[in-house]
Design a protein around this nucleic acid. Structure first.
Length: 420
RNA sequence: GUGGAUGUAGUUCAAUUGGCAGAGCACCGGAUUGUGGUUCCGGGCGUUGUGGGUUCAAGUCCCAUCUUCCACCCCA
């Protein structure tokens, strides 16, 4: 029986893991610079947490969540997103009592049952950040700035930032009614999907891709016209801060968030060269969420992004992340005595932190050097009868071929300094 | 969930109207038993994704199924 990886999942192989490390480390660094600290939460949570936060009618909850019952028949779900668990932990551990503003970030796998496609998987890896504790527009801008710094640091250029305000629940409600009213007059012209959306989420009509729906959407009322004064003021303040930070953006009144908990600012970072799955990160403010899941009435703003699409973008823009790490040296052993001493030295060197490759199954000198070449090691450390009698090691630079004798205790020094 | 493509050696790809399943790269071994990268020589019985069917004969035709990809949908 040949076992196969489950649909929509993928292995990250050694040829690629280092690239993931680079990107993940870069994110940790940027988050740290902005004062965010890492939080790790479980991969599964109570189903209700997601139902309550994302919204019972959201697609995520309705059809994409992996649910299961444990032996005590508790309903659990593999987390489909990261914000709800972080907020749950924040409330449960009373993090609000420790400081007024709590800055958190996370990295880890998320799960959604969806039809796989490039840049879309059933188990995918997300990073995200949440700034909890203030309604101040500065924090909206800060979290956007952090993402911008991250993408810039990786070297991505083909990125667009789109922002919008989805208002507070009050103006939001008013707007939805206006929108329904507008589209209702064209009810029969809408595509089946949109007829559905008209009932459940009128805002989704705004980004339908069917040409006729699109043309109807052009004249639809915009949320910006329905924002109350506070919401308008907040949105313009966010923009001011973005300008102060020299971050360019476009306002896209059609940005809609898929999850119910968003209020005020909503934004997306897009890479236009990516095809349909082109949103590499997105987020927004969620002032009502914390109280919704049982905490105090504390405002917050957050962002989440996917590593798969990020790596696709890097490929697309041909941005190198460096090179796959290779051993610094390969140990070549000839003769019984050398083998005995060599194995001991190998362990010592490795213990000292040097990445040294060796293969005891390669017998001939030639095969060992060939393996050394193949391993991409910088040096070959050669020990044979000659070296044993003189108590030395021959160090050969595999790039140029020059070699040098050196006493056993100086090998480590030579590996650090080079042959010169 | 909907529509359309795809699947042959580790990998990239070949295989005329159905007629013995092949090549480049990679990999392994060798070319006077302590010197690799170049060169030369040698090395592949692969459940042609899987299961059925048609046929004397199926990688090739038919059906089913799975995977991946593209778009929709959704989302980060």
């Amino acid at each position: 029986m040949q076992y196969k990886i489950p649909r929509g999942t993928f292995d990250i192989l050694p040829s690629d893991t280092w690239r993931w490390q680079v990107v993940i480390n870069a994110y940790r660094e940027v988050a740290c610079a902005y004062g965010y600290e890492e939080i790790v939460t479980p991969i599964f949570e109570q189903v209700e947490l997601f139902e309550r936060s994302s919204g019972e009618n959201s697609d995520i909850v309705q059809k994409e969540m992996y649910r299961f019952q444990d032996k005590k028949e508790r309903w659990l779900a593999l987390r489909p997103e990261g914000t709800a668990p972080v907020v749950r932990s924040y409330v449960e551990n009373h993090l609000d009592a420790q400081s007024r503003i709590t800055r958190l970030f996370y990295i880890g796998p998320m799960f959604r049952y969806d039809r796989p496609q490039a840049g879309r998987y059933r188990q995918f890896y997300q990073y995200g950040a949440e700034c909890i504790g203030s309604h101040h527009p500065y924090f909206d801008a800060e979290i956007i700035a952090m993402q911008s710094t991250f993408l810039t640091k990786l070297g991505l250029k083909d990125i667009i930032l789109e922002i919008n305000s989805v208002g507070c629940p009050e103006c939001s409600k008013e707007y939805d009614q206006a929108l329904s009213k507008y589209f209702d007059q064209y009810k029969d012209e809408l595509c089946p999907d949109c007829q559905n959306r008209l009932q459940t989420k009128p805002r989704r009509l705004l980004d339908c891709k069917v040409p006729h729906c699109k043309s109807l959407a052009v004249k639809a009322p915009l949320l910006t016209e329905y924002l109350d004064n506070d919401c308008k003021e907040h949105f313009s303040q966010v923009q001011n801060y973005l300008k102060m930070m020299d971050i360019s953006y476009q306002i896209n009144p059609r940005i809609v968030r898929g999850l119910d908990y968003y209020t005020h600012t909503a934004f997306e970072f897009l890479n236009m060269s990516l095809g349909a799955q082109n949103a590499i990160s997105g987020g927004g403010r969620y002032d009502g969420l914390i109280s919704q899941v049982g905490g105090k009435d504390i405002p917050a703003v957050g962002i989440a992004g996917g590593f798969e699409r990020l790596l696709l973008s890097l490929d697309q823009e041909k941005i190198s992340l460096g090179e796959r790490p290779t051993p610094i040296a390969y140990l070549v052993l000839a003769g019984e005595q050398a083998k005995e001493l060599g194995i001991k030295l190998l362990k010592d060197w490795r213990q000292a932190g040097f990445a040294i490759a060796h293969d005891p199954e390669k017998d001939s000198f030639k095969a060992q050097l060939k393996a050394a070449d193949n391993s991409q090691a910088r040096y070959a450390l050669i020990i044979g009868d000659d070296e044993i009698t003189q108590e030395i090691v021959t160090v050969k630079d595999l790039r140029h071929g020059e070699q040098k004798s050196c006493s056993i205790k100086d090998v480590a020094y030579l590996l650090l300094q080079g042959l010169e």
